[in-house]
Design a protein around this nucleic acid. Structure first.
Lengths: 341, 341
DNA sequence: CCGCAGACTGGAAACGTTTCCAACAGCGGT
DNA sequence: ACCGCTGTTGGAAACGTTTCCAGTCTGCGG
């Protein structure tokens, strides 16, 4: 284990050939068999491996794409990442994950520190956005794709989904089950998902044939712990809800936990729906009824947009929307035999 | 939005001063007030931001540390990462997460592709290791810290924990509860955690005062889904276990799910213990009794080792061991009032 | 035997940055 | 008036790589 790494120049000296030939022998084309062999041997002796920085400086590319996300602990991001990886890996890109923190400012800061960083592009899911962040994205020296919010006005490529409609579907579902007191368990309203889900809820409630009582509670963030706390309040009301529509699966799990604490049975006493259709929700007990926002597909779509921008950075920005789908499971409908997959 | 980014040279030309002065004015010291102002203005006009690659090439550092992990979906890694981040961030390092895939070969491949990549060091948690991977780690051009397995023989810095003893503690706990048929739900034996936990189980069973029947089932991997499947087998045996000791929290959750499917009550019919003491287990229902392996502390310890190596790459390799602790919760002991935090 | 094509090699530039070093100006002290 | 010091600036090198370009060599056909 030498303390300093071997460089191409040292390999060249060792092999007794020129730098140019050394490089060609290792990576490029147009080197004789003898040369390749000779250089390979020298490289092996020295334990040479190319320096990515030098290489990138010359090539002007890093073959890395950043996936920047607020809370790495949310399983939905894992699924989005799988989608991204699936599309990008065959094109030789490595995906690196960075945690942005959950404020717009911290996201801006990360993007700034990455400004022309070690990536050829960034796929960002901002939890909160402000004008500064959007401007930062517009000015970024590498292509950026935003997931979670249509950015048509700003000329930024984005992948979004109609989570408002998804909330509507969940509301409609529990109403159709005969539930009459619906609690809406949302995350912070100043976040992108929080605000659009709130809009979905408001729209659903104001539909003319809507006929249930509603109540709203906002959790401190989109985590199970916050969900437990907020759901407790919801369930403590004099008019206890017989259904809780949660803004994501983690909150829904929190709601189930809070309900169980009170000795309530799911779904008999309280039906609970989630959103994101994460694997966690699918293996939870009871299995979670959830609105899929096409996580993996959103990841794939974002990755495809990124590939387009990587080919041509000046390509026009595009917006893609991914459909939603309600998956009904045990947390709203008692069904022990079905749904085996 | 210009299609090509501004370089320092262009800023220098714009400001009408030398390249050296420009650089000093922006980052370094020893520039006059007038100079700084002038250069700042030019930089702002051009929307300049320093190119990280060029900078790193010159500085020979990237201020990035990689955290390479097999399955980004496992919540224990999230907690380890928080620990790493906590220590590294104040020192100006950014942590980037990379997914290695779950085989030794894929880990080796990642490390190779990162060989001298865009990071100043790597913290790795290999799920499976083989000689080639270890050799690769030893040859890596940047400092590497391994989490999960003592590497004393190879001169590699590592952070480990006595998960074998942890399994022992869990076994002892369920025995002390009066359980007499213990099922051990492990993950793949060819993995680092799988093998050490198996060892812990074997040791516990062979202790001279050990007096319960045991049974073992190995899940396909360390996920909830695999846990459900394997636990079903365990619970289908003629001599159904009255306690299941699982090798991590995800498997434990799978076991609880499988038990519930069979109409069994937790912990009355079956007591279940997990390992890793993840947040997920703490909010699960029932709350999971789990052996903490000090995830955050392991992360912090690894980060501190990394800082030491970053200062002096030839510093002697060190091994740190982090203690374990059993947290008793509802999945083994019925206790509705306690354990509020 | 000469010339030419083709295969291969080496020199050198370039990517964008930081920093060493030398040069220079202004200034105060002797 | 001169010396040296301080504060500031510019030139140039360096980090490690790839690739353009020109040059050399081999072999082959005329």
């Amino acid at each position: 284990m030498t303390s300093t790494r071997a460089t191409l120049i040292q390999v060249a000296e060792r092999a007794g050939v020129s730098l140019a030939s050394t490089s060609r022998a290792l990576h490029g084309t147009g080197a004789s068999k003898a040369m390749v062999e000779r250089v390979r041997a020298a490289a092996a002796e020295l334990g040479y491996s190319a320096d990515a920085i030098g290489r990138s400086l010359r090539l002007k590319k890093t073959s890395q794409i950043a996936f920047a996300v607020a809370d790495i602990g949310n399983p939905v991001y894992v699924e989005i990442m799988r989608g991204i990886h699936e599309v990008l890996a065959p094109h030789g890109y490595r995906v690196v994950v960075m945690s942005t923190g959950d404020t717009a400012a911290s996201t801006t800061e990360l993007m700034h520190s990455l400004h022309g960083g070690f990536v050829d592009g960034m796929i960002v899911i901002p939890l909160r956005t402000d004008d500064e962040l959007i401007e930062q994205i517009g000015r970024a020296p590498v292509p950026v794709v935003v997931i979670g919010r249509a950015m048509s006005d700003r000329g930024i490529s984005s992948v979004s989904t109609d989570s408002a409609a998804g909330i509507g579907a969940a509301m409609q579902h529990v109403v159709s089950l005969g539930r009459r007191r619906i609690g809406f368990l949302n995350g912070p309203l100043d976040t992108t998902p929080g605000s659009s889900r709130q809009r979905g809820f408001d729209e659903a409630v104001s539909a003319k044939d809507f006929s249930a009582e509603t109540d709203v509670e906002v959790a401190a963030d989109f985590t199970v712990a916050a969900g437990i706390e907020a759901a407790r309040k919801l369930l403590d009301r004099p008019q206890r809800p017989d259904a809780i529509v949660a803004a994501n699966d983690l909150l829904a799990i929190g709601a189930i936990r809070a309900a169980r604490e009170l000795g309530l049975s799911i779904p008999r006493d309280v039906a609970v729906t989630g959103m994101d259709d994460t694997e966690l929700g699918q293996v939870f007990l009871p299995r979670l009824t959830s609105v899929s926002l096409g996580s993996a597909e959103r990841g794939r779509a974002a990755a495809r947009l990124m590939l387009g921008l990587a080919d041509d950075a000046d390509a026009p920005a595009r917006q893609i929307s991914v459909g939603t789908e309600l998956f009904v499971r045990e947390s709203t409908v008692d069904q022990n035999a079905e749904d085996t997959e």
